[in-house]
Structure formats: structure tokens, C-alpha cells
Design a protein around this nucleic acid. Sequence first.
RNA 1: GCGCUCAUCGUCUAGCCUGGCCUAGGACACCGGCCUUUCACGCCGGCGACGGGGGUUCGAAUCCCCCUGGGCGUACCA
Length: 465
Amino acid sequence: MSNLRVRFAPSPTGYLHIGGARTALFNYLLAKKEQGTFVLRIEDTDVARSTRESVDAILQAMDWLGLSCDEGPFYQSERFELYQEKIEQLLAEGKAYRCTCTPEELEEKRNRALAEGGKPKYDGTCRDRAAQDADLPHVVRFRFPQQGETSFNDRIKGVIRFANDELDDLIIRRTDGTPTYNFVVVVDDATMGISLVVRGDDHVNNTPRQIPMYEALGFPVPEFAHVPMILGADKSRLSKRHGATSVMAYRDLGYLPEAMVNYLVRLGWSYGDEEIFSMDELIEKFSLENVGKSAGVFNPDKLLWLNAHYIKTGDVGRLAGLLRGHLLELGIDADGGPVLEAVVRSLQERAQTLVEMAEGARFYFAGKIEYDDKARAKCLTADKKEPLLEVVRHLEAMRECTLESVENAFAAMMAATGLKFGQFGPAVRVALTGSMSSPSNYEMIAILGVEESCRRIRAAIEVLE
RNA sequence: GCGCUCAUCGUCUAGCCUGGCCUAGGACACCGGCCUUUCACGCCGGCGACGGGGGUUCGAAUCCCCCUGGGCGUACCA
């Protein structure tokens, strides 16, 4: 075990999205690589917006991606006592103060400052007033240093400095008594012993507000690594209108978790020219040094390509299990049909997602083939009757039905009759599947079996035009 | 507005720190060809970028400055 302690701290106000998943992944990889500890913390201080469903969705998504935590999940909503204690401590030490300005007054001051070209920060009305009556409605503000500067050496972005007079005394406890994000994140990261905070770029600006609080509380300041944002195709922040942003939506779309992990890690990180990484390789090769500084655009095409790669190379048994679920979604019960593993093998190289595979597998389980109009008109013509009957004859003469025996049967038929593939092949394909594109005839027949294959061919003969 | 930050093919990126090996490499997408019993897979090839302007230097994608553009923040959200 090393001393490295990292954490992923999502707020449960929705599903785990692409950006959050990547942050979680980076943290996970770092922890595994250094044999450190990966802590999961649920940031639910905003009681109104946090939901149990979101927590479950996030946990489920992390589980799907294989990002197991070593500690947690911890819930901030269960730690209010600790936060209260720390706030009282700051109050007692004069490092925080009660403020009775109303939201309306603040809003008004902000607007005025902005209109006059000034900074919309808190003007410090209550800062220097004598201690405010604790019985009056009030918030608690952290007394932020107004001189000097706050800086930190970001592990990804390098040194970042802020002039302290840019920041104001932020609210750490609301009127309703609940603590706010910027404060609890400090208390939690400190008390949970987090040594490296890896989080989204959007928190860079929060960092200089948090550092003085670590110091005021007497905590050591952790290291920070801010990972760049993920943008949509138009370079604006990734959102629903750019397509699915929920990680779990991709599972339902037929994506494999390893494809998602592989895609996510390469968005912002690279390792020479390598594109394909297993989780184990990532644990070995991932490092913050190779994380880029600039925001990246989410590219669904590349994710799709990776998914196709993992489907092509995936374990057939596992894929069959997953395919079963997707077939069910299409109303197809795989039981009683052809061996699913064989079905997967025949479709592995032609499906980019499991949903595509399920759709491509439809014909295997169809009782009655629905012919594509064009395919039927082109391939199921009257002159195919004799060739198709020959096919049936030769297939039924086989002793066993394997890929090899089917191939031999066709070879024998062609030798005996002089028929060329074009005279029966396309027709067989349409008879078997209803369409002009499919796995190879031989393979399909081997999978469907002689009886079913011949039944389909005979049915096609009935409808020749 | 102000603050922080980023900037290589359409996209993800290598190269940048330690200038010359860069007529800028790889991947996705796209286009063409090959393979082929269809569709795919695969293979081969093509298209395609250092945002602009100033410097520094014998030499800059690489160093410096300015401009422009993008992102983030500026909440009693996280």
C-alpha cells in the first residue's frame, strides 16, 4: 500500500455521465497503479436536488465499468455533525463570521457592481461588524484573505495563481443551517486523508477558495490534478443534445464496458500510438504526465469503433450471455433456437454493437421469414426453383450438419450439376434470412441445421416469382 | 465585464519541456483499391493540421510577446 489516496465525489443529481465516468476512471487507475486507496464519496449536501435513484444509478454505472472503490461510499448527508463542528471552530477562532445580508440585497449588490464594471463579489458588509446575533437568520461566511495570492502546482496544468482580492468571503453555511460544497469538500478530503484530488477542470476556480480553508482548519493541503472537460461536437459543454451522455445508456445501446473504458481513457490521455488498452494495461501504463491540458470533443464514432473491436475479439460465451438480453429486448426468446455461441460467432465481425448483433440475429429465430422486397425480386426468381431443389436434396443427403459437411455438400452439388454459385447462392441467402446481406450461407446452414434450413428453402420455392 | 485556462488533420492525439531526426507520425471518420458467396472483417492507398501576427535563432510546431478563438468560473448548485 502506498500513501496515495484519491477519491471520486459525484453529486447524485442525475446519472453518471461521460465526464464523471472518466474522472472516476482516472482516479481508479491512479489508485490501482500506486496501490493506493480509491475512496467514493457521495456529495449530497444539496438535499433538495439529491436523490437515492441517482446514487443507485451512479453506483451501478461504476460497477458496470469495473471501477470498484476501496472505501465508501460515504455520504456527506451523514456527516453534517462534523461540518457543524468545524464551522463552530472557525467561528470561535474568528476565521468565519455570521452574515445577515439577504439574498435579495446580495443580488442587488452584485448587479450594481457588474453594472459599474466592478467585480461581483461580496462587499464585506458583515465582515467587520461586531459579532452578529446568532438568533437572527444568517449565513456563515469564511473570512478569506484579501491580500497576497493563492497558488498551487496542478499535476496536470502546472502552477496556477490567483490574486486573493479576486475572491470574496464565501458562504460555508446556509441560512437553513446546511453547509455548502466548497467547505465540505475541504473537510471531507482532509479528514478522509485524500492526498491527491483528481477532478474536473471546472473546479480549478474553486481550488484557490478551498486552499485557505485547509489552512484555516489546520489541515495539510492535498495535491491537485484538474482533468480537462469533455465537450460536444460543437465544442460547447457536453450535454444531452450531443447524444447520450449517460454511461448506462451506452450499455443499453449495446456497448461493452471495456470499450467505454478504453474510449474514455484515450480522451485526454495517450500512450504513444497505442489505441487499445485492457484495464490491466491501463493500470500499468496510465499516468498523469500523459494527460493533456486541453478539452476534448466526445467522438461517438471512435467509441463505436472500439466497441466493434471488443465485440470482434470478445469472449463468445460472455457475448452470448449479453446477446440473450438484447434479443429479449426485441421480443426474442433465444431458448429453443440455434446455439447462441454459434450465432455470436457468425455475427461477431459484422456487428458494432450488441443491439446490432441482436438485430442481425433476428432471422435465426424467425419462424417465418419476412422477405425484403428488393431481395425477393432480385434473388427469388422462378428460374431458381431447380437449383434450390438441388440444394435441398444435397443438404438432406448429409449424414451430419457441420460447416465442413455443408461445404462439401455444396461442392458436390456444383460438381454434379454444373451449377454456379450465382445460380443458387443469393437465393439460398434470401430464403434463409430474407435479406441479401448475412453471414455465409454455409455457416448459417450449419447453425440452423438441415431441417430448418430446408424448411426455409422450400418455403422460398413456394413464393418464387 | 473580470478571473483562471486551453490552442497540431473534421475528431482523439504523438511531437513541444531538453529548437534541426517533422517534406509533422498514429487512430476514428471519409474516399479509392484489393480480398470476397452477399454484408461485414481484413489489407493497401488517398484526403487532411502546427489559429493569426510579431520577435529570438543559422534554423521554430517546438522559446518569448501580442491578437484571435474556445472552455471554465464568477450562486445561500456541486
